[in-house]
């Protein structure tokens, strides 16, 4: 089944806070392969509620983010979204691992090394 991932980013990194993120990357993928071109959305202002709504409207199946409040985390999980939160590091690497299905919650991604440290 095709999946759609939403990644909250800030510069080169996964945005440390869900509620303050304004850059959103959306990637469609299937069995470890990216389908089509990823889409980047810049929000006018940060809003955790707007991000939740966007996730629902866009039929997102997976989210990669940094810190997220419990109420928003619970809401997204309720909407059957797989939330990989507390991810720290380069967003490209996070997307790569997310698409491959090897990224875990709380993972710290080192930009200069291939290895990663899972808490």
């Amino acid at each position: 089944m095709m999946q759609k991932m939403m990644v909250l980013i800030q510069g080169d990194f996964v945005a440390p806070r869900f509620d303050l993120a304004t850059e959103v990357l959306m990637v469609q993928f299937d069995k470890g392969n990216v389908i089509g071109e990823p889409k980047m959305i810049i929000m006018e202002r940060s809003s955790d509620e707007a991000l939740c709504q966007m996730a629902v409207e866009e039929n997102i199946t997976d989210i990669i983010c940094g810190g997220i409040e419990e109420v928003h985390y619970n809401f997204l999980v309720w909407k059957k979204v797989a939330v990989l939160d507390a991810v720290i590091g380069n967003w490209r690497k996070a997307v790569e691992k997310g698409v491959a299905g090897t990224l875990s919650q709380g993972e710290i991604l080192h930009s200069n090394k291939d290895e990663s440290l899972t808490l």
Partner: peptide
Amino acid sequence: HGSFEAGRQGMELGAFDYIM
């Protein structure tokens, strides 16, 4: 309108899901 707030309240009141 699938507002987050309505969804959150629905979730807390035990709804299974919401659809727009």
